[in-house]
Design a protein around this nucleic acid. Structure first.
Lengths: 252, 252
DNA sequence: AAAACAACTTGATCCACATCAAGAATTTCT
DNA sequence: AGAAATTCTTGATGTGGATCAAGTTGTTTT
């Protein structure tokens, strides 16, 4: 049961061009030559263990990081001891973009499980992008995409019900796992209910109740961190808001 | 009373180096020469009137825009006819960064009053930033700052009370007006209560009630769109959350 | 294996804010 | 200027989700 395969860090490809994540994390439209040059500045660090910080708010910024395996939570510690979870990051995703602004990290990043990352020294990336227009273009796009994603999150937090939030959350993971070649309907969430609630602007209890309710409604099966989505179309209906979910059901 | 001065568009400075907004919208650290070159690609369009769209979601992206006078609301129209207000933008602020991603606007921008903008054709800006490392650096910083600002908004919507949201909103305008050489405590808001509520994830009625309450508590004076902040320190206390606002009051 | 702890679930209660409703003030239209 | 449509305010009521409380399950420590 618990014999999940442990990632062997000795197998990590040391070149971007051989990396299975390349299509995700590497700017499209780079020539093989470009990739080679980009590759030359990337550093592979030791793996982090669950609970290790990749960086903390206030740390001097020097590198962007691409998750290569495992998962990471970013959060901003707020005045009164609490925190706001800003995101959960899967292999192929880039973090640290918010720190370019003033050369220091504005939020913290912590490994949710054993996690490996590639570090991209930003000053070198910048220099490189000066002489590689396609890289520069991709950097702009990447930063812009980040803005767009946060914008969606604003709508989620500003207008959506608890139900819609959790459905959106689950489908986001579904899509991202699928992109990475994993099952879109059967996966493990590496974060706690508390962290999900914090991220979605909900109380832990609400998240727990929603999981139970979704299960009762045969939308999914859940046992602790293991989630199986049973009715993805209906989850999408829920995301759409209003009561289209139920009407779809009766329309069948 | 209503004889507010109308901005004369004939006085608009046609060169960035003479523009009073330069310190706000122009990347710091550009040489006079750099500014000249940047200036050469900027287009000044005709002014927009209240209700005119600068662009709409789905429009092809070609230019970033800097507000030079007036104010703009950005919003993303959501499926069911409603909208999510994403931001309110004042002179010196840059909009359109979210559209770089896939060459089309993901949100809409509409003038809240008579508004003038500078357009910066992005492809030209990009080319220019290739040969001007300092411009490139500033572009990265600008994009990163945008991400950071949205992150703050996530915390606002995820964790803050209605009271904290409105206080944050008011102080944001206070600070921005101050930066632009206007009064930090006496200003006009160009958007409706409805738009404020939408932006802050609150109902119109809640916003209205909060204005009344803040006034009753002598935090401010408000008449329609005209706001006078009377106790800025206490507003900051409210932003901090918890009940520090009241305790500060009694500590005096 | 027992003890201590952390994560999760479930039920009961509460409250901040939404929603509904209606009137007042303001702006826009004719 | 008067009518019509908006925008804003205020009050009454409702409710989604928070909070409080307690138990359960799973994990870590010793």
């Amino acid at each position: 049961m618990t014999s999940r395969k442990v990632v062997s860090f000795e197998n990590i490809k040391v070149a971007c061009k051989n990396c299975s994540l390349a299509t995700l994390c590497l700017p499209m439209g780079l020539t093989a030559d470009d990739v080679e040059r980009l590759d030359s500045i990337i550093k592979r660090g030791r793996p982090y263990h669950r609970g290790d910080h990749l960086y903390r708010g206030g740390d001097k910024f020097h590198s962007l990081r691409v998750i290569t395996s495992g998962s990471v939570k970013t959060y901003s510690p707020n005045e009164d001891g609490g925190e706001q979870v800003l995101g959960f990051h899967l292999p192929g995703e880039l973090i640290g973009l918010d720190a370019i602004q003033d050369d220091s990290h504005t939020c913290s990043a912590i490994a949710l499980e054993t996690t490996a990352v590639c570090e991209i020294p930003f000053s070198q990336l910048e220099s490189l992008s000066c002489i590689m227009p396609s890289l520069q273009h991709q950097m702009y796009r990447l930063l812009s995409r980040e803005i767009g994603q946060e914008t969606e999150m604003l709508t989620l937090l500003g207008k959506k019900s608890a139900e819609e939030r959790l459905a959106t959350f689950l489908l986001s993971f579904s899509e991202r796992f699928k992109q990475r070649g994993f099952s879109a309907s059967d996966f493990f969430l590496s974060m706690s209910r508390h962290e999900i609630g914090n991220y979605l602007g909900l109380a832990v209890e609400t998240v727990s109740r929603l999981f139970t309710r979704f299960q009762d409604e045969s939308l999914l099966r859940v046992e602790r961190k293991h989630v199986q989505l049973l009715d993805i179309p209906r989850l999408y209906d829920i995301v759409q808001g209003s009561d289209s979910a139920k009407s779809t059901q009766s329309r069948v």
